[in-house]
Simulated scan of single mutants.
Amino acid sequence: MSLIVLIFMLVFVTELISWIGTSVLLDLAYGLYIRLFYASAVSRQRELKTEILTTKKELLSTSAQDQFAKWAKLRRSVDKGLAELEKINGELSSNKTTFSLKFKSMLWILTTGLQFVVGWWYRKSAVFYLPPGWLGPITWWMSLPFAPKGSVSVGVWQMACRRVIKVGERTVRDMIKPSAILSEPVAVETESKASAEQKKKS
């Protein structure tokens, strides 16, 4: 893969993750993770919730005075179920905290961290060369800080890619907003017509 495409893809993936949101990706990844590695715990958690709700319902319909033995047995069953559920919830919560830390670290390494590494490794390399005299006196700026004169450096190319992607994102959002706004007045107008017709009928 050429350097020009590699840097663009790194910047694009970083901006895409930022646009989607780390929390959304974390929830999706964690959901998949617990289904693969903690399926039995999740299944047991679901069963316990159902059992506790059923037992509680039965407990509420049982008289503590007239049917004390049955009431006490149901009460012990609810307490035991709640204790087990709390233990499972604690384990899953602890696993989520650990997974969240590892997932966020991995995302940072694969995006921002990798951009730093690539930028440092290719700091003296030219991403591509500009035609002579194309940008006049500001051509030197494109090669900052260490790339050969007349070329575009990795740092400048990263900034350019990020800027273009952000402009593209803003354009897409602006295109989506008007369509949502246009659909709302149509609905309001339809409702007002319907209410006007009802008034006429009445």
Rank of each mutant, 00 (worst) to 15 (best):
T112H: 10
T112Y: 11
C161S: 13
T55M: 07
A72I: 11
E51G: 05
I52L: 06
A180F: 15
S63T: 08
P185V: 05
G133N: 07
W134Y: 15
S43C: 13
K96V: 02
T112W: 08
T97W: 01
K87H: 14
I17T: 04
S2C: 11
I88C: 03
K87Y: 13
K87I: 08
I165L: 04
I88E: 02
I20K: 02
P185Y: 09
S143F: 02
D27F: 06
T55D: 10
V42P: 01
W141I: 10
L135C: 15
V13T: 07
S202H: 12
Y129K: 04
K80Y: 08
E84N: 06
K57I: 04
A160M: 09
K201F: 14
S143P: 03
S18N: 13
W19V: 08
R170Q: 12
E189W: 13
L85W: 01
P145I: 03
S77V: 06
A194E: 14
R35G: 11
S105I: 04
S183C: 11
K96D: 02
K70D: 08
Y129P: 00
V42R: 01
S94Q: 12
I109A: 10
Q65M: 13
S105K: 02
G21V: 09
F37E: 03
F12R: 00
G21C: 10
I20N: 07
G31E: 04
V42K: 01
V186W: 10
L135P: 06
K70H: 12
S105C: 10
K104S: 09
I52S: 04
V13D: 01
V156C: 11
I165R: 00
G113L: 06
T55V: 14
K96F: 06
L10C: 03
S94N: 12
K149N: 12
S100E: 11
R123L: 04
L59F: 09
K56Q: 14
W108I: 00
G21R: 04
T50M: 14
E58K: 05
S77F: 10
W120I: 09
L28P: 01
Y38L: 01
W71R: 04
A69P: 00
P145V: 05
E86M: 08
K56S: 12
I176P: 01
V78K: 00
V172Y: 13
Y129F: 15
L32R: 09
S151W: 06
S61N: 15
R35L: 08
T98K: 05
S183N: 09
A64W: 13
L85C: 08
K80C: 10
T190S: 13
L101H: 10
L85I: 05
L36Y: 09
S63G: 09
M175P: 00
T50W: 11
V188L: 08
G31F: 08
T62V: 10
E51W: 06
L82A: 05
M106I: 14
L53A: 15
D79R: 04
A187W: 12
A29F: 04
I4T: 07
D79Q: 10
T97S: 12
L3Q: 02
S61I: 10
A39P: 00
V172D: 06
T22Y: 08
K56I: 08
W108G: 00
Q158H: 11
Q115S: 07
S183H: 06
R44G: 02
T171R: 02
P131F: 07
T111E: 05
K87M: 11
K149E: 14
I88L: 10
P145N: 05
F99E: 03
V127L: 05
A194P: 03
